[in-house]
């Protein structure tokens, strides 16, 4: 028996947000598959209210019945920042005043990156019931992961603000540079959710690999120490996508605009990530429901 992987195109004309016509058939051309992927994104945009609601529910349901609700996120981040802050300021011989604002910012932003990546692994496997019950754009699931984590980040920002208030360490106008960088984060986040989501639903060995890579990345990417502390080996960080992508948002918020090499590296890795993610998604989109 010969197994031919499915290649097809679906034409969906929608009326009032509903599927009114569906035409699914075998189709070999890359262009047709690409049109399908674009349509997937188009539908996800149209279903934005759903995506927003699902993202909120993900957080609310986790804390339903607890008094503080999502602010438990804020509290646990605050405790983490406090504990590591005291420990490392002693280890590194820095004053808290010098170290704590950096650490608060670093840990909160790293928390976003690492949770997006670990959630990305369960992007589709975590939504199996929905995927098998209704036809839904897959990019909606990826967007949901990013939106959910932006909401979590919103709660954790309180920690940064409190530290800055206590130590009056506000960044200047250069903080605005973090805005376009954060938009890049959102795009990268969706890309990684699609890429890892599809990959992890096909190969179930990937999530543990991702988890150990992320653990290593935490230590090599200058999250809890300042890049200056690496001394002459500092240039190596420019080749670490985790560091450069972290630094384009963290630097400006800390009042230090990263050098051009950091920006070039972050942009390069983002382009590679998005391209890989797009090719993967175009190739395997309709297989995902068979894999979950």
């Amino acid at each position: 028996m010969l197994y031919r992987p499915g290649r097809m195109t679906v034409a969906i004309t929608t009326g009032a947000g509903r599927v009114t016509s569906m035409d699914v058939r075998t189709d070999l051309s890359f262009a047709a598959r690409q049109r399908m992927a674009v349509r997937d994104f188009g539908e996800a945009i149209r279903l934005w209210p759903l995506c927003w609601k699902l993202s909120w529910l993900d957080i609310l349901l986790r804390y339903r019945g607890s008094t503080l609700g999502p602010f438990w996120l804020t509290i646990s981040t605050a405790i983490m920042v406090g504990a590591i802050g005291f420990l490392n300021s002693v280890l590194f011989g820095m004053t808290l005043r010098e170290y704590l604002p950096f650490l608060a910012l670093s840990l909160v932003l790293w928390g976003f990156i690492s949770t997006v990546i670990s959630d990305a692994c369960a992007c589709f496997t975590g939504a199996t019931a929905t995927i098998l019950a209704v036809r839904m754009p897959f990019s909606l699931q990826a967007t949901r992961i990013v939106v959910r984590n932006v909401l979590v980040l919103g709660h954790n920002i309180v920690v940064i603000v409190v530290v800055d208030l206590l130590l009056s360490s506000w960044p200047g106008g250069e903080a605005l540079l973090a805005v376009p960088a954060f938009l890049l984060w959102i795009i990268d986040g969706i890309a990684i959710a699609l890429l890892l989501g599809a990959f992890c639903s096909r190969f179930r060995d990937i999530p543990p690999i991702v988890a150990s890579v992320m653990q290593m990345a935490f230590f090599i990417s200058g999250v809890i120490y300042k890049p200056e502390q690496l001394g002459t080996s500092r240039w190596l960080l420019q080749f670490n996508p985790f560091f450069t992508i972290l630094d384009i948002v963290r630097g400006p918020l800390f009042g230090q605009i990263p050098g051009w090499s950091t920006y070039v590296s972050a942009a390069f890795f983002s382009v590679v990530l998005c391209a890989a993610s797009w090719l993967m998604f175009v190739r395997v989109r309709e297989r995902i429901s068979f894999w979950v």
Binding site: G6, M8, I12, D23, V24, R25, T26, I131, S289, F290
Partner: peptide, 14 residues
């Protein structure tokens, strides 16, 4: 329902 897409052939729903 469009949840699984065909490996070969065609499904057309109006």
């Amino acid at each position: 329902a469009g949840i699984y897409e065909p490996v070969t052939g065609r499904v057309h729903v109006e």
